[in-house]
């Protein structure tokens, strides 16, 4: 059997809200090591990868590897029935065609149980090689979200240039052009307010703001976002999930014609 208990249903809610506009259906791959999920949007232009380590759960048991095919819109409907502080348990028997989702309020006075139908998905799984990226930035996720949202009003694409002093987001549109530069700041009192650049060489790539906006929906997952870039390969936009794992998004840079 498979059973995974999370102290806060809100974490699962945030994960599903972060990806459900991008991904319709996905397999949750469960093993002794934890839960992973890899899925592409319908046009296969972006990819998201979730990793939740088993030791990040309150309780975790997975007797044999399982792939649970889920419709994310339907999972979202069920998660809306959970209080943010509810304890959430996912459970399925071997060969079951449903996933049992349980919410327990902190004082145990309210217990909800749902059976979500599983779907058979013939999902393509891509091997993502370990890559030594030329430029990496860690910055506050709320700042990233705001920059992407603001630039989306001006244009369709955004250049991201990482240099030794920081990162510059540039945009061009019918009304003109603009840029927002965020300076490296490793001295900020709180770790989550720091902007840190690690680079071997400056990298500048251009991306579709439509997809970066989808990725920014993961902002509630944590205070930090990490961008990893190398020339001519997909950017990795990673939202670390404290003590549990991460949610990563991949998007290819725009190619100049």
């Amino acid at each position: 059997m498979f059973e995974a208990k999370l102290n806060e249903a809100s974490l699962l809610k945030k994960i599903v809200e972060a990806i459900r506009e991008l991904v319709t259906d996905a397999n949750l791959d469960c093993s002794e090591a934890g839960i992973t999920m890899q899925a592409m949007d319908s046009s296969h232009v972006s990819l998201c990868a979730l990793n939740l380590r088993s030791d990040g759960f309150d309780h975790y048991r997975c007797d044999r590897n399982l792939s649970l095919g889920l419709n994310l819109a339907n999972l979202s409907k069920i998660l809306k029935c959970a209080g943010n502080n509810d304890v959430c348990t996912l459970r399925t028997e071997d060969d079951a065609d449903t996933l049992t989702v349980t919410f327990e309020s902190p004082k145990q006075e309210r217990i909800s149980e749902f059976e979500l139908k599983l779907i058979a998905l013939d999902a393509e799984h891509l091997g993502i090689p370990d890559t030594n990226y030329k430029a990496q930035v860690r910055m506050p996720s709320a700042e990233f979200q705001r920059i992407i949202r603001d630039l989306s009003v001006i244009g369709d694409t955004c250049s991201i240039a990482v240099g030794k002093d920081g990162v510059r987001f540039g945009v061009e549109g019918d009304l003109g052009s603009g840029s927002i530069s965020v300076k490296q700041n490793t001295a900020a009192e709180k770790e989550e307010e720091r902007v840190e650049v690690h680079m071997e060489e400056p990298v500048e790539l251009t991306f579709a703001l439509r997809y970066l906006n989808f990725f920014a929906k993961a902002t509630p997952l944590g205070p930090i976002v990490a961008l990893s870039m190398s020339p001519d390969v997909p950017v990795v936009v990673e939202f670390p999930i404290e003590t549990v794992g991460y949610l990563r998004f991949y998007l290819a840079p725009k190619i100049d014609e």
Binding site: S46, L47, E124, L126, T157, A252
Partner: peptide, 14 residues
Amino acid sequence: KGGQTRMDTFFKST
């Protein structure tokens, strides 16, 4: 503006 490359161009199916 350029085109958008699919992910399976970069990462191979396993």
